[in-house]
């Protein structure tokens, strides 16, 4: 489903070129979830950005459902993000002027793939019913992340990329959010690739990979 082969990426810094990904490779099958572990600045988020087309690799290949993402144009990446991918961020990235209901519906509306029953299911499962008319700023961090999860799943993407989705949350809330995310991703038949610092959060995934010195190494399954 997702195949990453020998991916390279480096950044120009004032003190020289810093290589964050060196021949990094990874495989993730449909319906599976994987956690990406590693130290700060190790390149975990960069890998997600390269998959989503928010940044470009220096070399290597990325295949998603037999599509060569490394050859995609910006326009193709836009289409991909709108229909087959979704992103969840540590900072939630909700639209501050839209209500919870409009925020969670936004991406599905953009794709034209809005399933009302599934929306009701997500709202009920994530416990967002009483919050639908509120604005993001009127929600707690955990509530905002639940809205972001609903938004990322409503259009039924093939792959969910989550960049430290519990990074801003306390332990209890983190566990609740992760339970919901992994359950919903599984129910939805999507794959999940999640960046995290926390081995406890990584335990919710089928696989774990550690990014160290630019290379990806598989860890023992949780």
């Amino acid at each position: 489903m997702l195949h990453i082969n020998q991916l390279n990426k480096s950044f120009d810094q004032p003190d020289g070129k810093v290589s964050v990904l060196q021949q990094a490779s990874l495989q993730l099958e449909a319906g599976q979830s994987a956690a990406l572990l590693g130290e700060s600045g190790s390149g975990k988020s960069t890998l997600l950005h390269l998959i989503a087309g928010l940044d470009r690799a220096d070399g290597g290949e990325i295949w998603l459902q037999q599509q060569p993402l490394h050859q995609f144009s910006d326009e193709q990446f836009n289409q991909l993000r709108r229909t087959q991918l979704s992103l969840i961020f540590q900072q939630y990235h909700l639209v501050p002027t839209l209500s919870v209901f409009d925020n969670l519906s936004l991406q599905a509306r953009l794709t034209g793939n809005l399933d009302d029953d599934f929306r009701q299911h997500l709202i009920a499962t994530l416990g967002l019913g009483p919050l639908l008319k509120r604005l993001p700023q009127q929600l707690s961090g955990g509530q905002q992340q639940r809205v972001a999860i609903a938004r990322s799943l409503l259009h039924r993407p093939a792959l969910v990329l989550a960049d430290e989705p519990t990074g801003n949350l306390d332990e209890n809330t983190s566990q609740q959010v992760m339970q919901l995310l992994s359950q919903l991703v599984r129910d939805n038949g999507s794959s999940l690739l999640m960046v995290t610092h926390s081995p406890a959060m990584a335990a919710y995934c089928d696989h774990s990979w550690r990014l160290q010195h630019g290379r990806l190494e598989a860890e023992l399954s949780a």
């Binding site: 989503a52 836009n78 993000r81 709108r82 991918l85 990235h93 909700l94 639209v95 991406q107």
Partner: peptide, 16 residues
């Protein structure tokens, strides 16, 4: 004021 919203929309796949 909407810089963040504009970027979010781009992240959601809306082309420039």
């Amino acid at each position: 004021s909407r810089a963040s919203t504009l970027t979010t929309l781009r992240e959601l796949g809306v082309s420039a």
